[in-house]
Design a protein around this nucleic acid. Structure first.
Length: 635
RNA sequence: GCCACCCUAGCUCAGUCGGUAGAGCAGCGCAUUCGUAAUGCGCCGGUCGUCGGUUCAAAUCCGACGGGUGGCUCCA
């Protein structure tokens, strides 16, 4: 279903509609789920689906003229969409703030009625008569009738049976399954969470419906566990932690939405991360490039961006009568460098990397902290290689990617292999070779992956790696994308052994994706308790009284000389308060220094985990800390 | 962008029925020198997002605008 939607999308890509070309190198775009993760039709599924029906009944009592749309179970609950009709002034009616409470109460009454869910099959005509005053249902039935869609409007292989489920006064077009009766829904195991606008069939050109989200579990305990988990996730939210640890800010009023200010703490972390990555790139056969933030319109015409990516680009800047555009991607510049001289087959592969800052238009409603922004820096690189080098190059880049991710502690992610869409550019045999190389590389790296058939970009197949944030939302970080398009458009070539011109393969890749999004995921992954090597401040030296300050400075000097980042808490606060300050800033190591330590020439180590390691010599501490830093360990 | 909700001091928040602004933290000052998550006292700090309207009177009611949060994708 998703697949089919995407194919429709990609068909439009090939007509070069800008709207539909958004998948193009979308390392900063939150990706549509490519997983075919059909929810198992287990007890929870039935429970949630049934709760949705019960909710619809309650809503129809509150708003008898409401039209019902669809109400499926989802991963942790359910929702139902309603069209509540119009207000007197013609505006769309929406739920009132206390409606949810009333609906929830009414649902409990319905549950208490233990009404059986009754299944029946009907003909299309019967169904239409039954739902005569429900236009959305009629649309669904017509889809079913045509045999190509199910009750949610998704394409189907075969014409399905049209069925309904009825409980109490509410009968819904539905395939089921459901619990036997409403009494099976635990009255204290569900909760209505929020209302939201949602377009009918997800299409913004169609009416906006009112959606109520709810969550439902087998019992009160599971519900509470879920709600607690939501609370915990909020504490890890990178926007909250980013503020608490003074890592970054954005100021939509004065600076602009989706534009990030990296504060010194965050900037230091980013510097450390980039420094490490750049060194690794240089050690792994990459060359670096720096390219400008703007380029002439001509460049973006040649690259095709003005043709199919214009919707994500900002308005042109006019300079002496010529139009320049802020770059949404780095590739045309790198291609230009590749073209700047004649390349021999001996020069390949060329691996050109740049921490390139790009700007893309994102609709205001989708901006999200660091994870979805309008200006961001990709750890971008373009690989130019000979066809015979391609499989090894893919292997190499995938392994390098895993190495980088693991260096930051990421070992779990969802991998996707997206293959040739119906329409595409580039020769079929090259596609096949590229897909084969990508898949073999995944297999050799022993990464579990899912194939998204036809999910590739029109210009080439790709591997995407996606991480989860605190709320288990997927964010794409790494991407490795073939490009059969740009070498053609820019007429790239190298001189082969035979003295003839040959077209190189080109691969886009970003490993962390963008520094901004990577930090969003990094912050949530660690909840702010970063590995010591990345920690802006690694050691808090806490003298117990002013008498111990000089000793504290000595300790600081020695640790700093060894390369650790150390601060002495030499204010007049009590030691407890200093510990608390360091604790709140999630400083990994606290060295408490009182008269006892000073006399013995020791340090007393407390970890941010709360663990107290007691007295040790400064040398022992230093050796331990340096080892943790070098190994990129957590603490 | 669209729907809902929200916007009060640097931060987190309170503010009843419309009667003219509060707390904690942070900051600053003074005192305190303390053994593993908050020492005490004092001071400073607000055009209640902006603009307009209703009213004798607006943080509070209404409207527009700006900004934020969640949702609009999790469907099988």
């Amino acid at each position: 279903m998703l697949r089919a939607e995407r194919q429709v999308g990609w068909n439009r890509v090939l007509t070069l509609s800008p709207q539909q070309a958004k998948g193009f190198f979308e390392s900063n775009r939150r990706h549509i789920m490519a997983k075919s993760n059909e929810l198992p039709k287990d007890d929870l599924y039935k429970l949630r689906h049934s709760a949705a029906h019960v909710m619809a009944e309650a809503v129809l009592e509150l708003y008898p003229e409401a039209k019902v749309a669809i109400g499926p179970p989802i991963q942790e609950g359910f929702y139902y969409d309603f069209d509540l009709g119009r207000n007197a002034d013609g505006t769309a009616r929406t739920f009132a703030p206390d409606d949810l409470e009333w609906i929830e109460g009414r649902m409990r009454q319905i549950i208490g009625g233990r009404f059986p869910f009754q299944y029946r099959e009907v003909s299309a005509d019967e169904a239409k008569a039954l739902f005569a005053d429900q236009p959305y249902k009629i649309e669904l039935i017509e889809g079913l009738e045509r045999g190509s869609f199910d009750e949610y409007g998704n394409p189907l292989e075969e014409a399905p049976v049209i069925s309904t489920y009825k409980h109490d006064t509410f009968e819904d077009l539905c395939r089921g399954p459901h619990v036997e009766n409403t009494g099976k829904i635990p009255p204290d195991g569900f909760k209505l969470l929020s209302v939201a606008g949602a377009y009918w069939r997800g299409d913004e050109n169609r009416p906006m419906l009112q959606r109520i989200y709810g969550t439902a579990w087998k019992n009160k305990k599971d519900l509470k566990a879920y709600l607690d988990r939501l609370e915990e996730a909020k504490k890890r939210d990178h926007r909250k932690v980013g503020k608490e640890l003074d890592l970054y800010s954005s100021d939509s009023d004065d600076v602009g939405g989706g534009l990030i200010l990296w504060h010194p703490n965050g900037a230091l972390m980013r510097h450390l991360a980039e420094e490490f990555c750049k060194d690794e790139h240089l050690a792994h056969g990459y060359v670096l490039a720096y390219t400008p933030h703007i380029g002439r319109a001509k460049l973006w015409e040649t690259s095709g961006h003005l043709g199919f990516y214009a919707d994500n680009m900002y308005s042109p800047i006019e300079i002496e009568g010529q139009e320049f555009y802020l770059k949404p991607m780095n590739c045309p510049f790198h291609v230009n460098i590749f073209k700047s001289r004649l390349r021999s087959y001996r020069d390949l592969p060329v691996r050109m990397a740049e921490w390139g800052t790009v700007y893309r238009f994102e609709r205001s409603g989708v901006l999200h902290g660091l994870a979805r922004v309008r200006g961001f820096t990709q750890d971008d690189a373009h690989l130019f290689c000979r066809p015979d080098q391609m499989p090894a190059e893919i292997d190499r880049v995938l392994n390098f990617c895993l190495h980088i991710l693991r260096s930051f502690g990421f070992t779990e992610f969802n991998a996707y292999l997206s293959t040739k869409p119906e329409k595409s550019v580039g020769p079929a045999d090259q596609w096949q070779a590229a897909e084969h190389a990508l898949e073999e590389a995944l297999k050799r790296a022993e990464i579990p992956y899912e194939i998204d058939p036809g999910g590739g970009a029109f210009y080439g197949p790709k591997i995407d790696l996606k991480m989860l944030d605190a709320l288990d939302r997927e964010w794409q970080l790494s991407t490795i994308q073939f490009d059969f398009n740009l070498p053609e458009r820019f007429d790239l070539h190298y001189i082969g052994e035979d003295g003839q011109q040959h077209r190189p393969y080109m691969i886009h890749r970003a490993l962390l994706g963008s520094m901004e999004r990577f930090f969003a995921v990094l912050i949530e992954h660690y909840g702010g308790n970063f590995p010591v090597w990345l920690q802006p401040q690694q050691v808090a030296v806490i003298p117990i009284t002013d008498r111990n300050n000089d000793y504290a400075y000595q300790v600081q000097g020695k640790l700093e000389a060894a390369g650790l980042r150390v601060e002495v808490y030499d204010n007049s606060d009590r030691m407890q308060a200093k510990v608390r300050d360091a604790q709140l800033m999630k400083i990994p190591y606290m060295l408490v220094l009182g008269d006892r330590e000073e006399e013995a020439g020791m340090v007393n180590l407390r970890l941010r985990t709360g663990e107290r390691r007691g007295n040790m010599t400064l040398d022992d501490f230093l050796a331990m800390a340096l080892d943790v830093v070098a190994s990129k360990a957590l603490i």
